[in-house]
Design a protein around this nucleic acid. Structure first.
Lengths: 333, 333
DNA sequence: CTGAAAGCGCTAACAA
DNA sequence: TTGTTAGCGCTTTCAG
């Protein structure tokens, strides 16, 4: 037995397919009796409308794609999860299908199945974005300020975030400040580091290169870096980690070495990951509204896919300092 | 200017739509000259085939749904990420659209858009599975042995996993063994605990209730539990955590308290999360092939959606002990 | 190797 | 309130 179609339902209900269509779509212009008949038939035949046919007839594709660029580990980050949740939430409330693209960042992806695409960042996959734009697929990028492509974006000023972190540590009296960067091939990683460095320079505080460790947002890279910092003959009194997860791992490391945060060393993170609140010490951090950014991205994209708007929105937000317990003034200058 | 359709392409190429269709679908029966003409037109018009029309004409829906039941925090787990990756990978290689359903576990979800659904577990959302089955949508469940519903599944014997963990600790000579369970409303959480408890009973080792802490797979719950255990006048010499992330957090806590793993306390986890390798001590754990399970789920589901098979597969695997450095014999009985 | 034509299942005027 | 009908864009026989 094949799948029931609208015709089968109509036949069983002894009504026209239009009427069936009306009740499927909840149009009010159907008499209660007929509605009941249709509903009986639908239930009996286990009828499910064919979405492809609906979309074809309606002329719209009710789905958007979501691509997470594939650098190893990005999935395991708070960042990715928040975006997934945000995008998912928006799609659910807008009744959009969320089509996930897991990709290594290079494989071509099939844009045809979706009305638009949101990119969870651009890392090494700028090509994919360009390809999508070239085919005329509306695109929206999260966490990258990209002004040279016809795409919308929502990003936060990572440069400013780095400055804020540095400034705060400086204001506490720290002079020996180290940093574990994020992945520097990401705009966020590079800019946080730049902002951080710039502020230090501005305040005439030197940043020796043994105080800089290139991480990649992973706990593992943070652990490695922290170990190096702590083994220095002249260790830093404060550390700026480009993500909270890294900050958390650094704090663990410090404790393992028998020292205390913030008494012996201050640590500041980035993201405002709730995990900041539940560790050994509440982590001071730079907040960025990932979930909301993802939601907003979907809404913006949808309004252009559905033709309600025509101009790509370019949104650029400021991050915000959240003071908690992981930073204090250094014991001695 | 509207989107170009196959007719537009045919017109520009001065050929029939059949020929255009053949080129699009890479059928070899097209002369090189005509193929070139079509390709020129396609490029010129930025033609993208309408997937809905293709699916309608072909009579198949090339996409599968993926639902992650929504209990808070599940997203932030290694478990969820591995499944997402595995499902994503399989879909990419099978050329399937992966439609993500983020749901609180109660909202009805629209199954019509997909050919089949894989559930990343069943927690409180059994209803959704039943609803899907009722509409005739092929379903496949990961990590739940469900024999009373017409669905396929791939699960691992969590009961056995719990036993293996207990048995290993026992074999090392531990008598005072505590556990932080997973979410007990999940089959995995409940069964790991049951298996663990059973093995202890079998070996006549008592499990006082202050040695049992109901966690929920979160780091936070593990930290809380560990703190309680360590504060006991008679603390355990070993702890079984129902996930590696919890084990990792417990290890951190132990270190914060100035003790060592495994010298003072042994800890065994569950999952075989790579993070086990990069912390202060390599974590001994119970391995379960999440990524592969997810992949397999998609393949099984697809073969029934596409009609290649008709019987739902029911797969039940055994977990495996992975010995690393976080467990040792207790210092004294 | 190519084209004509019959649908795929549904929506949305339009008439009744 | 209901039914008729013309597509939506594409695939796929079937002739040629």
């Amino acid at each position: 037995m094949k799948k029931a179609s609208i015709t089968d339902v109509a036949r069983r209900a002894k009504l026209s397919i239009s009427t069936v269509s009306r009740v499927i779509n909840n149009l009010s212009t159907v008499s209660p009796e007929n509605r009941a008949k249709v509903e009986e038939a639908v239930a009996h035949l286990k009828f499910k409308p064919n979405v492809s046919a609906q979309r074809l007839a309606r002329g719209v594709n009710n789905s958007i794609g979501f691509v997470i660029p594939g650098y190893p580990g990005i999935f395991y980050s708070f960042y990715a999860i928040e975006l997934i949740r945000g995008v998912g939430h928006a799609c659910e409330s807008l009744n959009l299908d969320l089509v996930f693209h897991i990709t290594n960042g290079f494989n071509p992806i099939n844009f045809n199945t979706v009305g638009g695409i949101v990119f969870a960042d651009i890392i090494e996959n700028r090509r994919q974005v360009e390809a999508a734009v070239a085919t005329g697929t509306p695109c929206f990028v999260i966490n990258n300020k990209v002004d040279d492509l016809d795409v919308g974006y929502i990003a936060v000023n990572n440069h400013l975030g780095g400055k804020i972190a540095a400034d705060y540590l400086l204001s506490l009296g720290h002079k020996k400040i180290a940093t574990v960067t994020g992945n520097l091939t990401t705009q966020s990683g590079a800019q946080r580091y730049e902002g951080f460095k710039e502020m230090l320079e501005k305040k005439k505080v030197t940043l020796p290169k043994e105080y800089v460790h290139q991480g990649d947002y992973s706990r593992q890279s943070a652990r490695y870096a922290a170990e190096r910092f702590l083994d220095l003959k002249n260790p830093p009194t404060a550390i700026f980690a480009a993500s909270d997860e890294m900050a958390l791992e650094i704090i663990s490391m410090i404790h393992e070495k028998g020292m205390k945060v913030p008494d012996d060393i201050s640590v500041i993170g980035y993201d405002d990951n709730p995990a900041c609140l539940y560790g050994a010490v509440a982590v001071t951090t730079i907040k960025q509204p990932l979930f909301q950014m993802a939601e907003k991205a979907v809404r913006c994209l949808n309004s252009i896919v559905s033709g309600k708007k025509t101009k790509n929105e370019k949104i650029y937000l400021d991050p915000e300092l959240v003071v908690r317990d992981s930073c204090a003034s250094p014991k001695r200058g």
